[in-house]
Amino acid sequence: MSYMDYVRTFKLPHSWCPGCGIGTIMQAMVRAFDALKWKREDIAFITGIGCSGRMSTYVNANTMHTTHGRPLAFATGVKLARPEKHVVVVSGDGDALAIGGNHFIHAARRNIDIKLIIINNSVYGMTGGQVSPTTPQMFRTQTTPYGNIEPNFDVVKLAIAAGATFVARESVTRPRNLAKLIERSFQHKGFSVVEAISNCHINLGRRNKLKDQITMLRWINDRIIPMNVAKRKDPEEIKDKIILGVFHEDKERKEYTELYEELIQRAGGKK
């Protein structure tokens, strides 16, 4: 087996723009599948709507392309029905944090064993470049022609506050680290969130002097800082930086489907 066995190669080339980070993130994810030797038949891979949503076509597993913002709700049904299976969700920043925000915080609150990867390119790419809950301040987008005033979510803080028991962030410019981080999140028992900072030069970049993938990846590289390096800096120096690493890991808290099995015993139900 190689990571390519988790790719529906007969569906390549995929439809993402040249230089888009989604393909890189997909590779990091399937490498994690391969590293853990997960059987394809045991994986449910569920996506929402948006550029990232198209990934369910290309991953060779039990896949589902659901509705905008709702993959976690579908995944909850799949996981509760078959708790012994691996359930993985990929969602964009708009998909997970805007329309899907309610399902994001509740899946985290439940600590249900679903592996979420949020591809955060800070824009609605599929629909032509509208503002998203993570679009930087004063950035121009199709719906913020006078500069974005929409305050941003801190995805990591939001996930931790809601109850996720593994929360981490990496960047598409460090795909090897991202693959390792995703692998680690897959091994965690409970709701895990990996935020992958990504680039959309076609929509977000083009309107903000970052018009190609090289320029935009350089811009991302200038903004990111690994956690261990950030620790040694004084806060003022890194206040605009995006810190990468594992922010939260709670191995004690019981996972939702485990609690449900106990509930069935209490109800005297036969398994």
């Binding site: 449910a44 569920i46 589902m64 659901t66 509705t67 709702r70 709700a73 579908f74 995944a75 909850t76 049904g77 799949v78 509760l80 029905a81 078959r82 299976k85 309610n102 399902h103 509740h106 449900y260 069935i264 139900g269 036969k270 398994k271």
Partner: peptide, 24 residues
């Protein structure tokens, strides 16, 4: 009967979860 019940966060999520379980 070893079945699964969940009260979801809204009706949209409930419909989604029911479909997810059916696909499973």
């Amino acid at each position: 009967v070893g079945g699964k019940f969940i009260q979801m966060e809204d009706e949209i999520a409930s419909m989604a979860a029911a479909i997810g379980a059916s696909v499973a």
